[in-house]
Structure formats: C-alpha cells, structure tokens
Amino acid sequence: MSAAKRVQQWATFARSWHIFDCKWQDPYESAHVIKKYLMGMHKPIYHPMNDCGDVVVCINSREIALRGDEWRKRAYFHHTGYPGGASWTLAWELHNKDPTMIIKKAVYRAMTGNLQRRHTMQRLFIYPGENVPEDVLQNVTNQIRQIRYVPKRLDHIPEEEVKNYPKVMEYPEDFVVK
C-alpha cells in the first residue's frame, strides 16, 4: 500500500442494515430519507460510482399516511404496451392490492433514473406489518428516525391513566358536552 493511501479507510465493503418504521409517515417524504441510506448519501465518502449504499428494511408499510385526500386523488399509471392498455389505479386501490407498493414506488421515483437504480432497489426490503423474517432482522444495526411524530390515540391509552390524568378544571354539573 502506498504512503498516500495509508490512512484510506473507505470501508469496508460492509453494508450496515437500517430499519425504518413507516407507521403514520408520509411515503413521499420518507422516500427521500430512505433513498439517502440506500444510495449511501449519508456517508462522506459518497460517490455515484462507488458502491457504498446500505440496506434498508421498512416495516409497517400498511400503516402509511397520505396527505389530504391523496388516497382518493392520487392515481398510479400503468400501460401494458398494447393499444388501449392504459390503466389508472387509485392509491387506495393499489394499497389494498399490495400494501408495500406505494412506498416502493415512492422510493423508486425519489432516485434519479440510471442503471444503478434497479440494483439499489434490491437492497430495500418492505414488510406490510411488524413481522420481519428472523434472518433479515438479525442484520439490523440501526434505526432511521421517523420524520413525523406518531401521536398516541386516546382510545389506546389505558383507561386508568386517562382517569388519573391531572385536570385544569372540572366541567360544571349542568354543562352539556356536544
């Protein structure tokens, strides 16, 4: 090894595995975060031609949240190639058919199109629920921070905790709750 490359620590050819919980996350926003890890853009040694991307495991893709009424408005276009082969599938229809497809397409579209994109996509694992195969889960070493805070639903909090929660005031006896 030459003296100039003595301290070169470009690791490593090892891929680290990240896990991302898609619960209540916008797939189009989180795609940009996932893309960063898939392509290796979170490392200062990044270069489009060096293979430094990591593996990302997405869980809970069934629980994604789309903005506004995008479930009804957003359409996914497909063309078979034959005349009259065009079809538009709404986001909710696609999600019912395959709960992993929306996040997959979002990540695919977030990356710039080149020959590497399909190989990079091979490193993305998406699971609709929390059940991840053991051989995948045992590699995971890092969790990607969620973009959005997942609030706790009132009906998921135990009733005792709700009752014992400190109150600012009590409603008067004759107050009518709408």
């Binding site: 853009m41 200062p44 489009p48």
Partner: peptide, 9 residues
C-alpha cells in the same frame, strides 16, 4: 458531489 459529502458529514 462535494455538497452531498459535506451534508452527509
């Protein structure tokens, strides 16, 4: 490219 790298760091 440098911007991407510095952002990552």
């Amino acid at each position: 490219l440098w911007d991407v790298r510095i952002t990552a760091a």
